[in-house]
């Protein structure tokens, strides 16, 4: 029993020394923490952070909005008219639509990256920016469409006008066609009537 007592004492002190040796070693282990705003951890290659849209490349196909599970992408488009077509994308794909509104609510986005895959032009992608906190939640809705309101209005008007013109043209064309048809029919009729004479002429 008395032996146990001394053993306990010895073990108590000895194990404390072992522990102290370990902490002493750690005193000189280089720190694993980073001084954050000055030093940053290297992001992994495929890290998912804030979304970005290369507006010039977007053709407005709405595939991304359809893929998003939380519906945080809002897109509105207007068709372009032949005289005022959007420039083609950087890879030369033709655009048929003016994208008048492209809003991503980054506050809602859950970084699932489902919107990136379906994009045919690779216009939407993840960046490496992860510090974008805001004081106002509304500021987290990012508007990527670079058209001003007036421009949007103009495109809309253009399109409406174009549509109207087209409609008118169509009407006219239909009318013309009808007339032409009528004419044709008349001509046909006339031809039929004149046919014998033709034969006659041939015979001549």
């Amino acid at each position: 029993m008395i032996k146990n007592y001394f053993k306990n004492t010895w073990e108590g002190l000895y194990t404390i020394l072992i522990g102290m040796k370990i902490t002493w070693k750690h005193l000189f282990v280089p720190s694993v923490t980073l001084q954050y705003p000055e030093e940053r951890a290297k992001l992994p290659e495929r890290a998912r952070n804030r979304l970005f849209l290369n507006y010039n490349d977007c053709i407005g196909c709405m595939q991304c909005a359809a893929a998003c599970p939380v519906n945080c992408i809002e897109i509105e488009t207007v068709k372009g008219i032949p005289t005022d077509m959007p420039d083609p994308t950087s890879k030369g794909q033709k655009k048929a639509l003016w994208v008048t509104k492209f809003d991503i609510d980054e506050g809602k986005c859950c970084f699932c990256q489902l919107c990136v895959a379906p994009c045919p032009t690779e216009a939407i992608y993840m960046t490496d920016i992860y510090e974008y906190s805001e004081f106002d939640r509304d500021n987290l809705v990012y508007n990527f469409a670079s058209l001003t309101k007036e421009e949007v209005q103009q495109k809309q008007d253009n399109f409406d006008k174009f549509q109207a013109e087209k409609e008118a043209q169509k009407l006219e064309a239909a009318k013309a066609k009808a007339e032409a048809d009528a004419k044709k029919a008349a001509e046909e009729k006339a031809k039929l009537e004149v046919k014998p004479s033709n034969d006659e002429k041939k015979e001549d």
């Binding site: 750690h26 000189f28 282990v29 720190s31 694993v32 923490t33 001084q35």
Partner: peptide, 13 residues
Amino acid sequence: KVSAHMQDRLGPM
């Protein structure tokens, strides 16, 4: 500082 470095941190900087 001592506590930080013993835990492989830096402490106040």
